[in-house]
Design a protein around this nucleic acid. Structure first.
Lengths: 221, 221
DNA sequence: TTTCTTCTCCCTGTAAATAGGGAGGCTTCT
DNA sequence: AGAAGCCTCCCTATTTACAGGGAGAAGAAA
């Protein structure tokens, strides 16, 4: 007799959680242990003694703490449930960032119903799991390589933004001009301009609008 | 004996639809007739002879046609199911736009589970229905007024964007500069500048970044 | 120690965006 | 016949943004 797989679900839309539970409950090998509506609830739940789950279904967009921050917290604390990201985003950068943070699976909400049970069983078994569309965009980048099924960590390709660049980017999305940003951060205008230039280069966008769109899509704001 | 309320659900995330069905099926007076995954499916379904629903649960973000366009289509064709918007967005402008397009209810995904059955019954009964958070932001604008329960249409406060302004806005979000936009639309640069000025004024934003953020938040792009 | 990254600031330009104004032609509604 | 809204284009002017380059200081890593 197989041991049950215990699952924790985190998403800020309760109705989506209800849907997931409805789907998962059709399988006898899997049991929902509990759910969280914010990132903070997730980390609190796992911090609490006695609370354990084999697999964590994790949304990215959540109040208080988002999915990224939840994983960073786990990495710091040495907690490592097998995490499956369940997100609307199919941006390659987000996927890679999540992989580098240690997630074991990534499925999009578009076809979650078909994949979620398989995904849970796969990652519970030590494998990785990606939904079709995610596999596609991953293969586009790593053409020639195959998706590792073991513990081989996929290294992030994107150049991470520095703290200062993030500071500037956030203020740009708040519609501040460079002189205003310089003022707010106590920097010379030339410094802000430098950060702007580096942001444009790193994110491969044409102008401030591109920066703003990137920030929105990647939930930096 | 009461007549059953027939409901059609439209959302691009199937798992969310499954959740809604699970919740609604707890109520004996309501029956899900069918569901759609895109805006086009919705209008096709209602166009098909014999297909009728009393209430339509409608998401805003959907491929092919979004929620706005679905309602515009209904208005043109003279089809008028009672529409409840189910969305993540609690932007006052979106709510007002939807109201001016004739929707009868608006609930956010955050607390859909608690509200959706009540909402369906209310609008099926000819009333309007808004979830708590939506009521709050509506009252902020219409302080002193009460939410009408009859057929009194709430007039949109926002100045709607014109077709041309939308054209320009969309190209701005694609990171085109004004000269490039002028070229693409076969306009003089001065004309594009005029549209830009009017956009900034209408949307009350400071710069192009503000325009882009508005477009993203309001799902114009 | 050397190397690398980050952060800081500077220079010289050109291109673009913003702010204010006006104005003529066009439809649509009253 | 007005009035109103939209689309188009023009003027002047200032402020920002973008592009390319260099460079010094501090800290971390190899």
């Amino acid at each position: 007799m197989k041991k049950k797989i215990y699952v924790h679900v985190a998403d800020d839309h309760k109705i989506l959680i209800e849907g997931i539970i409805a789907v998962i409950n059709t399988d006898k090998d899997i049991e929902i242990r509990d759910y969280s509506l914010t990132g903070k609830e997730v980390v609190d739940w796992f911090d609490k003694k006695g609370n354990k789950a084999d697999v964590l279904i994790l949304d990215i967009t959540m109040p208080v703490l988002d999915g990224f921050e939840v994983l960073r917290h786990f990495n710091q604390k040495g907690i490592n449930p097998k995490v499956i990201i369940l997100s609307s985003y199919d941006d390659i950068k987000i996927v890679q960032e999540m992989l580098s943070l240690g997630c074991k699976g990534y499925i999009t909400k578009n076809n979650a119903g078909e994949h979620i049970v398989d995904a849970i069983k796969a990652v519970a078994n030590g494998e990785q799991y990606f939904s079709d569309d995610i596999q596609k965009i991953l293969l586009k980048r790593f053409s020639g390589h195959h998706v590792p099924t073991g513990e081989a960590p996929v290294k992030s390709i994107i150049e991470a933004l520095t703290e200062r660049e993030l500071d500037v980017l956030k203020l740009i999305t708040k519609q501040y001009s460079s002189p205003e940003i310089a003022d707010k951060l106590n920097l010379a205008l030339s410094t802000v301009d430098t950060h702007r230039k580096n942001l444009l280069k790193k994110l491969k966008v044409k102008n401030s609008v591109g920066l703003a769109m990137y920030a929105v899509k990647n939930k930096i704001v």
